[in-house]
Amino acid sequence: MSTTDIVLIVVIALMLAYAIFDEFIQPLRQGGTLLRVPLRRTNRLDTLIFVGLIGILIYQNIIHNGTVLTTTLLISLVAMSLYLFYIRRPKLLFKATGFIYTNIFIPYTRIRNMNLSEDGILVVDLEKRRLLINVQQLDDLEKIYKFIIENQ
């Protein structure tokens, strides 16, 4: 087993661990999830370029009679990438005491101001940061508004 195969195994294992964490553990953190809002996907072109580059590596590995293990690991890496960036949906999870956005728990007490931009992006101002939450459907903004009003 080469160093390349070991690195591929580690990367695939980390991607799999993140997928399991995001799908099964994240909704249970900080109490039960009271509201789940799907978000818009970003960086689709970046993922397509990444998958294309790995496709070139697979082609080169097959042409130069590389090991079957390396080819299999590269195909697994493509499959995990496609799952994480095209099949899995990013989500905003609202809990009793805060919300989870991009895997970070943010308590409601940190919110200083909330605004809605003209293009339907929810702008949440924290102490030192501004979050731009881009929901998938505009109706979800109303759900978020009602949820925050009822739970504050």
Rank of each mutant, 00 (worst) to 15 (best):
T3W: 09
T3E: 08
T3C: 01
T3A: 13
T4M: 07
D5P: 01
I6V: 15
I6H: 05
I6G: 06
V7H: 07
V7C: 13
L8I: 07
L8A: 08
A13R: 03
L14Y: 12
A17G: 15
A19E: 09
I20W: 12
I20D: 04
F21A: 11
D22V: 00
D22P: 00
E23A: 14
F24I: 12
F24A: 07
F24K: 15
I25A: 11
I25V: 15
G32M: 06
G32D: 11
T33I: 03
T33G: 00
L34E: 12
L35G: 03
R36I: 04
R36M: 14
R36S: 12
V37L: 04
L39H: 06
L39D: 09
R40Q: 15
R40I: 04
T42M: 05
T42F: 07
N43Y: 12
R44K: 15
L45N: 09
D46C: 05
D46L: 12
T47R: 02
I49S: 00
F50Y: 10
V51D: 03
L53Q: 11
L53R: 00
L53K: 05
L57G: 03
I58L: 13
Q60Y: 14
Q60G: 07
N61K: 05
N61Q: 15
N65Q: 14
N65L: 09
G66R: 02
G66Q: 02
G66S: 09
G66M: 00
G66T: 01
V68H: 10
L69S: 09
L69D: 00
T70V: 12
T70Y: 01
T72D: 04
T72W: 03
L73K: 04
L74C: 08
L74S: 08
L74R: 03
I75G: 03
I75M: 11
I75N: 02
I75C: 09
S76W: 00
A79W: 02
M80R: 02
M80G: 03
S81Y: 02
L82K: 05
L82C: 14
Y83R: 09
F85A: 05
Y86D: 02
Y86I: 01
I87K: 08
R88H: 11
R89K: 13
R89G: 08
P90A: 07
K91W: 00
L93W: 01
L93N: 01
L93Y: 08
A96L: 11
A96E: 15
A96M: 11
T97W: 04
T97D: 15
G98D: 07
G98A: 13
F99W: 07
F99K: 03
I100Y: 08
N103M: 04
I104G: 01
F105K: 05
P107Y: 06
Y108F: 15
T109L: 10
R110V: 04
I111F: 01
M114E: 10
S117G: 06
D119Q: 14
D119W: 01
G120Q: 09
L122R: 08
L122F: 10
L122P: 01
V123W: 03
V123Y: 04
V124L: 06
L126C: 09
E127A: 08
K128Y: 09
R129C: 06
R130T: 12
R130Y: 06
I133D: 05
N134M: 08
Q136M: 13
Q137W: 06
L138T: 09
D139S: 13
D140I: 04
L141W: 03
E142Q: 14
E142I: 10
I148K: 12
I149F: 10
I149V: 15
E150T: 13
N151W: 07
Q152S: 13
Q152D: 14
Q152V: 08
